[in-house]
Design a protein around this nucleic acid. Structure first.
Length: 464
RNA sequence: GGUGCUGUGGCCGAGAGGCUGAAGGCGGCGGUUUGCUAAACCGUUAUACGGUUGAAAAGCCGUAUCGAGGGUUCGAAUCCCUCCGGCACCGCCA
């Protein structure tokens, strides 16, 4: 969320920043400032009227005490005249404020100065100093789902029968491998990087989704949960409204039901639960940086991904991920971003998986990010580097949405904190990477040394 | 889900139509005292918007803000309604 004052003071930088994202920044800024100006003009007018009302009200009290009913009566008449104007003004004020707020809520973060310009992923810029390893020579590489299915430990068919497309059953050693990876990653992040392990809720309220930026703009990417009873009530209320007043203009019944529906959202990433952990709080400088990590399932509707990665475990409705979240003071967030990326890479290094890091260009970055590093792991079966982690510095963007501030040692509230999040790593995709990189000619899969203690000291996964 | 209670500043908490931006306490900041620290004492301590003085720092005046929105009233933290949180008990339940 942007701060209207910041935009007012620095509208050119704001407009240019949005332009770098491919938006018409100048028009957006102009529109916002126009409304903001109208709002403040309105306030000036309204405040004079309110001042007179307050003054007259006091005089009425005094007149009544002095039993001067004539005086009281004439003042009351005057206030009655003001009342209407004030009420209208207050209505206008609310409308304008809501309009500004709604407009701000859907404007993405401004890219950092060192983020490369570009429209899509082709403009992302590799970070050579972060590259690691070389793709292993794998003869006749198979894709992970071929390996997993041949092992009899990855079952998409039964998952489809039970849950539909984009779900999977893992079984036996592969199921254990997922658990092992989660534990392995958590141990490194907590032991080596000082993150605190959390077990957070995976169902959250609207406010949390707003805080990290999934709402209001990206509803269609989310799964929602509600009881049938909750849905029935919402339906009834919406129907009643449509029956009596015909429903609000420009809204379908279905959309209107949404307004009455009390629901939880399933987190698309633990970033939501971990970052909102501190929403609406003022944090002491001494508790920063706050570093949190969690191993959770994540749920994504993948609404816009029809036809993409339809085979295998690359893109699922449900997957598990270890998430890293840092809350810092503004001066530390850039360093923290590098450190977080180090932590994510450390997992791949310990698993000896070749990977590279790219800085996302302005057009490829997510809504809340000011700068993002993607880590891409080599997948021999796909003969390509694929994203396995995304580490973002959101600056004060989420903190402003969540109302999370920090207080310096001198007791003064300094303003919004900075928030960062990164996958450390996507566990499902790490499992894919292990299958494809450690596949053996006989169809078995070697277990990386670092992981063997988590797998009962087994050295390979073979058909049961 | 039902019933009851509840939501006030950085925090705790009083306030039950006008004298309340809000008692008191804690915490913070400044100071006095003091070998040091602590204690004690004194002072101070919300935000936003508008206006105004000022080179600025800052000051002064006004307005709004006591979960959110609406209503009653000349006037609402206080009364009424709706919604959103929280707590307790009951029901159901891993």
């Amino acid at each position: 969320m942007h701060d209207i004052r910041g935009i007012r003071d620095n509208s050119d930088a704001f407009a240019q920043g949005l332009a770098r994202r491919g938006l018409d920044g100048a028009a957006i800024a102009r529109d916002l400032l126009e409304r903001d100006k109208a709002l403040r003009e309105l306030l000036t007018r309204l405040q004079t009227q309110q001042a007179r009302r307050n003054e007259a009200s006091k005089l009425i009290g005094q007149a009544k005490q002095k039993k001067d009913e004539d005086q009281a009566k004439s003042l009351m008449d005057e206030v009655a005249g003001l009342k209407d104007a004030i009420q209208r003004g207050e209505g206008e004020q609310r409308e304008l404020e809501a309009a500004v707020r709604d407009a701000l809520a859907v404007i993405p973060n401004i890219p950092a100065a060192d983020v490369p310009d570009g429209a899509d992923e082709r403009a992302n810029v590799s970070v050579p100093s972060r590259a690691f390893g070389t793709p292993p020579a794998v003869a006749n590489p198979k894709q992970h789902f071929e390996l997993g299915e041949a092992l009899g430990q990855m079952d998409f068919e039964r998952a489809a029968k039970v849950s539909g497309a984009r779900f999977v059953y893992l079984k036996g050693d592969l199921a254990r491998l997922e658990r092992a990876l989660g534990a392995f990653m958590l141990d490194i992040h907590t032991g080596q990087f000082g993150y605190t392990e959390m077990s957070p809720p995976v169902l959250v309220r609207d406010a949390a989704m707003f805080g990290t930026g999934q709402l209001p703009k990206f509803k269609e990417d989310l799964f929602a949960s509600y009881t049938t009873e909750e849905y029935r009530r919402a339906f009834d209320e919406a129907m009643l409204e449509f029956d009596t007043v015909g429903g609000p203009p420009n809204e379908t019944l279905q959309e209107r039901i949404g307004h009455f529906l009390k629901r939880h959202w399933l987190i698309p990433t633990a970033e939501v639960s971990l970052t909102n952990y501190v929403n609406d709080e003022i944090l002491a400088e001494a508790e920063l940086p706050m570093r949190l990590t969690a191993f959770t399932p994540c749920f994504r509707a993948e609404a816009g991904a029809a036809g993409k990665d339809t085979r295998g475990m690359i893109r699922m409705h449900q997957f598990s991920k270890v998430e890293l979240v840092s809350i810092t003071t503004p001066d530390k967030s850039n360093d923290e971003h590098e450190r977080m990326t180090d932590a994510a890479q450390e997992i791949l290094k310990k698993l000896d998986l070749a990977h590279r890091v790219v800085t996302l260009c302005t057009g490829d970055m997510g809504f809340s990010a000011r700068k993002t590093y993607d880590i891409e792991v080599w997948l021999p079966g796909q003969n390509a580097y694929r994203e396995i982690s995304s580490c973002s510095n959101c600056g004060p963007f989420q903190a402003l949405r969540m109302n999370t501030r920090w207080r310096a040692g001198d007791g003064k509230v300094k303003g919004p904190v900075h928030t960062l999040n990164g996958s450390g790593l996507a566990v499902g995709r790490t499992l894919v990477a292990i299958l494809e990189n450690y596949q053996q000619p006989d169809g078995s899969v070697a277990i990386p040394n670092a992981l063997q203690p988590y797998m009962g000291n087994k050295t390979k996964i073979a058909k049961a």
